[in-house]
Amino acid sequence: MHFVIGGAWQGKLDYAKKAFDLKEEDIFRCTAEAEPDFSRPCLTHYEQYVLYCIRKGTQDYYNIPENCKVIIADDIFCGVVPIDEEIRLWREESGRALTAAAEKAETVTRVFCGLPKRLK
């Protein structure tokens, strides 16, 4: 599995599409509202899936399916500590969950201003 991380609007998905030869139908955009389509090889906005799990009371985000080839996530853990309790919890859980994902990943790439940097 390849893991792509970076701030919002940095061009992570554009990078991943090119680097891992992904087509639109390969990509599932996670939301806080619904279960992801795990049959797709690329999950983007994985941090939203973390929020979905928090709301459901599970830690399923630690179980990354075998067929998942690319995980893309927004780095949401460098900013200000949020006042809202749920967002605060989400921020911290995202840090743990995405660190675990990066640990399992074959490669980790951070995208900054549209430019990739291999971290692992």
Partner: peptide
């Protein structure tokens, strides 16, 4: 670099962040 927050701000601020990116 103002792109690593968990909180979402009002729409003007979000459009500003996206615009700067």
């Amino acid at each position: 670099f103002i792109y690593a927050d968990a909180d979402r701000y009002n729409e003007f601020t979000e459009e500003y962040r996206e615009g700067l990116a």
